[in-house]
Design a protein around this nucleic acid. Sequence first.
DNA 1: ACAAAAGTGTTACACTTACACCCATGT
DNA 2: ACATGGGTGTAAGTGTAACACTTTTGT
Lengths: 233, 233
Amino acid sequence: MHIEFSPDDFQVALSTSVVLYGFDGEDLKLLIGTKTNEPYKGADVLPSVVVKPKEDPILVARELMRSITGFDDWLIERLNVFADPYRNPVGRVVNIAYYGTLRLSEDLENDLRHSEYRWVKADHIPPLAYDHNDIVDYSKERLKRRVKRRPIGFSLLPREFTLNQIQRLYECALGRELDKRNFRRKLLKSELLIDTGKTIRSSPRAKRPSGLFRFDEKKYRTLSLEGYDFVYQ
Amino acid sequence: MHIEFSPDDFQVALSTSVVLYGFDGEDLKLLIGTKTNEPYKGADVLPSVVVKPKEDPILVARELMRSITGFDDWLIERLNVFADPYRNPVGRVVNIAYYGTLRLSEDLENDLRHSEYRWVKADHIPPLAYDHNDIVDYSKERLKRRVKRRPIGFSLLPREFTLNQIQRLYECALGRELDKRNFRRKLLKSELLIDTGKTIRSSPRAKRPSGLFRFDEKKYRTLSLEGYDFVYQ
DNA sequence: ACAAAAGTGTTACACTTACACCCATGT
DNA sequence: ACATGGGTGTAAGTGTAACACTTTTGT
């Protein structure tokens, strides 16, 4: 097999975009920004950046996430490559997209309020420039699959959370309602939750407080190594 | 958000590799070739080809598959992008890999015998140049996942096959033994198999012939649309 | 008749689903 | 006392897993 590159072959540019999910206790959301230069000036886009020829896309994507959030408490994973020859009008640009999850906090919310990004509900994404709506659609499918098989949801929740919060998150990600008793039974049976003994009032209107749980990461890692699969069909 | 490409950013080349699976009734195999020019001259590699800056990788990958097999009776799907900056010594080359399945036949076997490719058992892959072993590992995981959820296996089998053949295929893909009775019950319950009424002797030593089945593609498409998931854990 | 692979059922257990009321607390 | 969301159990059905022998056919 003869494989040979000519100088003409080295004329492609790389970019990366990230789909960043957050969950505010009510809705699943993701971050979008606005393009400030041509092409597509003024259009909504995913957080994106050029990847220089010597750079590694995952590192660039991580750096982008760090620049958005200001810290490192998140999960990131490769999504896909978007390589349609005409996806970018400025030339041949191959986009290597990632998706990640953020643990929302007041600090982060405030930071973002003064940044160039804003949250939109994951089930009401506005039209985006380039093929970014395709990227978002793809990431939603992936998130759904991940939520079904891995306890990824915990990375979207506060470190301590109520069972109702996590149920709501699962309902958002899976796009359907779940039975409260069955959901709890299943989750508790996995023994991946630690009851902190603490309680919290979920809203001013809620009189009775709910119990707070933590995710047992150490146990999960052990189980993972043994091939454990947390499956929620 | 300001995203701007400078001319210097357009210095990346693209390539594509395909992982082609076949099943001969005994073992799951895949195709590899030998590099005839530097770098890595003489080393084993996946079937690979340069993607020109104006080309679409999926079309190039399909053309590569066509050139290998001589016909169109196969399935192909994007696998992943391999973008480590130093994966290729000749420069920055991003590889967009695909995997596919072939329906082996005597004609195809003969064609390949005179080609630059050869079959190796999927569980005994020799060391390959570049990061091609990573690509193969990734494709194996993908195949495993696909086999679990979709009746992809049929695309590796002859149009008419025995239940023992398909069980053997599943055992190869999943990497473990399955109970014959349970496997048959599950498969037949899905009602995706049509009993042709015909029989075949699976080997010269087998005295009793086995029944031949066909995959009901039409029914599968209908069920797919309804969100049916064929799950084999 | 024998060798070889094809084919076939049952039982115990685990998991899933559907379903409705009482509880704890703050106001 | 009442309003609010928090929390709980059971029963029927479905799917899974483990298990060994009989049947058919060619030689």
